[in-house]
Amino acid sequence: MEDIKSASNHLVASYIKETPKSLKLIDSYMVYILLTGIIQFVYVTIAGTFPNNAFLAGFISTVASFILAANLRIQTNPKNASQFPTTSPERAFADFLACNVVLHFAVANFLG
C-alpha cells in the first residue's frame, strides 16, 4: 500500500514537473471530452435510444474528438519525435483541425 502511494505520488509529481504544458492542455481537453461522453452514455441508458441518430451523432462526436486529440498528443509529444520525422507539431495540429472540421460536418448532418 505504501509502495502504491509513493509510486502514485511520484507519478503525479513527475507528470507535473516533466510534461510540457501543451500536452497538459491536451490532457485536460481529453478529460473534458471523456466526461461529456460518459454523461451521454449514462443518459442513454436512462432515457432510451430514441432518437437513435441524435444519440449516435452526439456520442460518436465525443469518441472521435477524443481519438483526434489523442493522435495530436502522440504526434506532438517530444518523446515520439523520432517516430514522426516528417511530421512537425504545426503539421500535426493542422491535420487535427482539418479532421475536426470533417467530423463536425458529419455530426451536424447526422444529428437531426
Binding site: Q40, F59, S61, T62, S65, H104, V107, L111
Partner: peptide, 20 residues
C-alpha cells in the same frame, strides 16, 4: 426537427465544437 429528449446530444455535439 428538434426533439426535446435529444437535447443532451445536441448540447454535447455543440460543446465538442465550442471545446475545440
Amino acid at each position: 426537427r428538434f426533439i426535446s429528449q435529444a437535447k443532451p446530444y445536441y448540447t454535447s455535439a455543440a460543446s465538442m465544437g465550442v471545446g475545440l
